[in-house]
């Protein structure tokens, strides 16, 4: 009943993977600095503004929060919203240089 109804409308759950592996779309990569990040610093589940604001649901509520780079599109909303500026957006090309 419920599924039948939901399929008559455009109904989806937010979460990674709705548009495939979107990690390849990224130009800037969000990197969390555990020295500044509130849950990492306190060692308790707290803040999680990055988790809340991530439009793709790719940030976990861990200590510290973890970003799933397979799906993170690099939109930068987490960095914008982080109250302690613990998230830095880093050129994706710099990681490629590191990898090679």
């Amino acid at each position: 009943m419920k599924d039948d109804y939901c399929r008559k409308t455009s109904h989806s759950k937010s979460g990674p993977g709705d548009a495939g592996k979107t990690g390849s779309w990224r130009i800037l990569r969000p990197v969390i600095d555990p020295a500044v990040c509130i849950p990492a610093k306190r060692g308790t589940p707290s803040c999680y503004m990055c988790w809340l604001y991530c439009p793709d649901g790719v940030i976990s509520r861990g200590i510290p929060p973890e970003i799933d780079y397979e799906y993170c599109k690099g939109c930068g909303i987490c960095a914008e919203e982080c109250p302690t500026k613990a998230i830095r957006m880093v050129e994706e090309s710099s990681f490629i240089k590191e990898d090679t």
Binding site: D4, T9, H11, K13, S14
Partner: peptide, 29 residues
């Protein structure tokens, strides 16, 4: 059969693509 449920957040009638797609559960949407 279905209504808004705070324990089960969902996107309703957001931008819906021209073609079918696979949703996060791997089901054709």
């Amino acid at each position: 059969a279905y209504c808004l449920d705070p324990d089960e957040p969902a996107n309703l009638n957001t931008v819906t693509l021209s073609d079918v797609r696979t949703d996060i559960n791997g089901v054709k949407a």
